[in-house]
Amino acid sequence: MASTFVRTSSLRFGGGQPRPAALEHQRKDRWWLSPLLTALGLGSFVVYATWAALQGTDYHVGQLLSPFYSPEIWGHSPHALFGPPPSWLPWPSFLPFSAAVLVLAIPGNFRLTCYYYRGAYYKAMWADPVACGVGEPRDEYRGEHKLPLILHNVHRYFLYGAIFVWFFLVHDVWKALWFPAAGGGTTFGLSVGGLLLGVNAVLLWLYCTGCHSLRHLVGGHCDEFSKNPVRFGAWRFVTSLNKRHQLYAWCSLFSVGFSDVYVRLCAKGVWHDVRIF
């Protein structure tokens, strides 16, 4: 017997049932608190990171390099991979040269296209919707079905880039563990700054390794795990981190920002990097 159900192009809502009006809701909880905190948190980070990235100064002190400026492809610090910026590098005259501008696009876009952050800032920054069950202010909606938001599908490419950058951050931690010795050479040790960079690298690893795209790439695309035990193991590991992806996203965001604040204030002489041993 043929199906009695037909997929309709649109449902017939009666005249007395218009779509919910902007911000219309019957919720009695503090539904506005979560999007407000998200907007404040993300907004503060974006403003600070942009300011810090455009400074081009006070981003290193001793062995410490701000994670915003790593890897320092070209620059004026001892951490620069290829020395000072070459003359052929186009740079707007109204901006001081900043190595951060050259690399921040990778981790920045990794977070911008991250599945967790997307859901968070669609709510907090774009009210799309501002909270579950609360009416939206706009009629038109394209979602991630069309341009421009369909571009979020390149998330896995920024994941590859973020993992590449992460190795440089680990190298920065290693360098931060070696202090100039009195008689020349270096000696192993740990300072608060080095500890901070280390914690930051660990949190970024937890955030990157819990990525939804990585979860798919390492094994999620397989339908028969029993025939791919290595992929199954990798998928289970990434899944275990993915369950706390939101937590790691926020912790790593804070640690990156605070690491820059710490190095910057050390470089300005506001405080000094205390050596633990």
């Binding site: 599945y115 859901g119 669609y122 709510k123 919707p129 394209r142 979602g143 991630e144 079905h145």
Partner: peptide
């Protein structure tokens, strides 16, 4: 099925 319309707000 318009999977791309989902903007992952997790509601």
């Amino acid at each position: 099925e318009g999977l791309g319309y989902c903007n992952i707000t997790k509601c």
